[in-house]
Amino acid sequence: MAKATFSVRRQTGFATIALVCFVMLYAPILTLMIYSFNDGTSVAIWEGFSWRWYERAAANEQVQESALLSLKIASIAAVLATIFATMAALATTRTRPYRGLTAIFAAINTPLMVPEIVTAVALLIFFASIKVATGYTGIAYLVAAHTAFCIPFAYLPIRARLESMDATLEIAAADLYATPWRAFRRVTFPLLWPGIVAGLMLAFVISLDDVVITEFVKSAGQDTLPTYMLGQLRRIVTPEMNAISTVFLGISVMVVALFFFMTRKKN
């Protein structure tokens, strides 16, 4: 009776390694979060609970400015990328193969294939010469760069949604006297909406997280939260960094959880 049943799926040691893996993934992040509440200056010695680093971070003007810039860029870039990706998805799904289709796919996916550092350097060169020529050093460069690399991320869920959508629905709308625009407004768009929201959220998170390209493209004095943090990491770090990171992580996790929940509910 005591004999354990033989499980076909079991592999010796796999569960242990997997659990170690999960601990390894979460332990550093959790430690980082915990120490954001440390009363002391050290990120290793616990000296009691306090909100002081959060207060300090909130009062830090540089943090405020960079966080604001991050949100501004992520919002604009995510919205633009999602609109562009939606249009491109409409042009590239459920059509007979046409000349240029593969080229469009390749173009949309380049940001996924090209190493970030290479794109960053390329943008540095290109935008540097434009900055010299025009004298303009605003956030348009960052917005353009972010929009570009967000497009494939927004494109993926939208395209997936379109492909799983019944193509005869639009034909049925046309059959029932809907002009192409009205068929889009009344049928395609409402059905595509969950995909568009998912794309928007992915694009937003991706833009918010970017370090490398922003670091190379930004003009002097322009810092997003990640580039600000990258600069700070060179110095002695205080739990203020932990506090900023914790808030940042919270936002990302929330958006991703929402995305996960939304895409799951559909199936």
Partner: peptide, 30 residues
């Protein structure tokens, strides 16, 4: 979901988290 979460969280923050673990004054050494 637990595997996906770290993937979508900021790479810099995750690097920072590792740094806090292996620093000379970090958790492991302490």
């Amino acid at each position: 979901f637990l595997i996906t979460i770290p993937f979508w969280t900021n790479l810099l923050i995750r690097t920072f988290a590792i740094q806090e673990v292996i620093r000379n004054e970090g958790i492991v050494n302490s």
